[in-house]
Every structure is written in C-alpha cells, then in structure tokens.
Amino acid sequence: MMFEFLDSLNAIELTPGMTLLSLFIGGLIMAVGLIIARTVKLLFTKYYAPKLSEDSAKNIGKLLYFGILIISFLVFTSSTGIDLSGLLVAGGIFGVVIGFATQSVVSNLISGIFLMIEKPAKQGDSIDLPDLNISGTLVDISTFSIRIRRFDGTIIRVPNESVFTTPIRSLTSSQVRRSEAIVGIAYKEDISKAITAMETEIMMTMPFVLSLPKPEFRIKELADSSVNIEILVWHPREDWGEVAPKLLKVVKKALDDNHIEIPFPQRVIWNGKE
C-alpha cells in the first residue's frame, strides 16, 4: 500500500528530473534538519553557553542553528535534483543589483562580524561613544546593529558600521574610575587651607572615594576672578553615581563651612579721569 503510494508520487513529474516523491523526501530532510538545528541549539544553550560570555554564546548558537539549516538545504537541493547553476547565473546578475541596493546592510554585517571578533566591549559593559554622543550599558552586539541601554533607561540601536568606525570608550574595563570637578576660590583665600578643608570633607562624607590613590588637588588656572582648583578622586567603577554627581556639592559645603569665598565673575573698570 505504502509502496504503491510512493510509486504514484514518483510517477508525478513536476519538472524534468524532479518528482513529487523527491520533493516529499526533500521536505522530510528539511524538517529533520530543522529539528536537529533546534535540538543542537537547545543543548548548546543548556550545557555550553553558560561557560561562554553572553554575546559569544548567542552568536555561536545562531551559527550552529543556521549552519545546520544551510547544510539541510544543500542536501535537500541535491536530493531533489534541483539544478542551481541557472539560479547562480541569474543570482550573479541579481546579486550585483542587490549589492548596490544593500551596500549599508552588507557593511553593517561585515562590521558586526569584526566587532564580534575584536570584542572592543562585552555585553553588560558600560561604554561611551563620544562621537555619537551615546553612553550606556551594552545590551548586545547582533548581526547588523548593537543595542545600548542609555543611563536614562531608554535603549538605542546603533548600526554596526557606525560603531566600528567610531572611538569606543570603555567605562568598566578597570576596577576603578576617576571623577573630576573644578572649583574656583577667591584670590585672597589661602589655597592650602581650602585644599585641606575640601579633602577632609570628601573623606568624611564620601565613603566610595578611595584612600589610595588619595584625592588629588591641582591648581588648574589663575583665572579672571578666581583661582581654579581641579579635584580628582578615584572610586570603584560601579559607584560613579555615588561620587561624581555629589562631588561639587560636598566641595561647596566644605568651602562654605570654612568661610572660603567662591567668587562671582567680576570686572574692575577704571574711570579714565582717575
């Protein structure tokens, strides 16, 4: 019964060399290929992916899945007797047309591959793209674009090509980061006293500021109205939010408490008759 059914399928010729039976077998091959691809991806995700970095695991998973599907497709075409040579010639011409039309897509794809190989940052890193004025946490690097969760909570998608050609500043590559602030004090004030006051207040009220390296104070500029002091403090990389936004507030309090003047911009005008 079964053989008769298969014989009847084999008798129906769709195109020269291609019967309904070969198409049926090809479909089975594709279905089995799909099941194998999904199973392999599932096993990989369960047993091997946890040992790899998140983005590598994701990319290798995709590679395995689509690799098995492509092999299945090739087996399918050879089993059904489909001749791809004509398709290749047509595809060649069509490819040139498509190539021009999809230039940026291909560029993004190639850039994505190089980004995955080079790994300038990994998933979860805080990065800054100064040329694009984007900073945040890298969510993932995918085939055509990367996604960054900005510090305001929104997610921005950036094409791989733009990322590949722009400087990338990693904010989490070392265990500590430095934050800076500049404050101006009046010319009449004692600079050493001001520095001591600021250092004491920083060490008393900012527990995330490192004791070693110690906070550093540099005379940045003898400016028009004030002596500008640059304050440089180190802190654990995770705790930027506990230090940088609060630094100026702490410094101002220290100067206020010690009656050290932070001058307004001022200009002395001489009357020509005097």
């Binding site: 070392s174 265990q175 527990p207 490192l210 004791s211």
Partner: peptide
C-alpha cells in the same frame, strides 16, 4: 567605625586590585 571603612587600590589604575584599605 564607618569613617575608617575605605577602599584603596593596590597597583596601577589600569590593572590594579580594588581592596578595602
């Protein structure tokens, strides 16, 4: 004694180890 509970870096900023100091 929270005021003496601080962090410190052993080594250089690019490759040092964050420690309690």
């Amino acid at each position: 004694e929270p005021e003496k509970s601080r962090f410190g870096l052993y080594g250089s900023p690019d490759s040092g180890i964050l420690c309690k100091y």
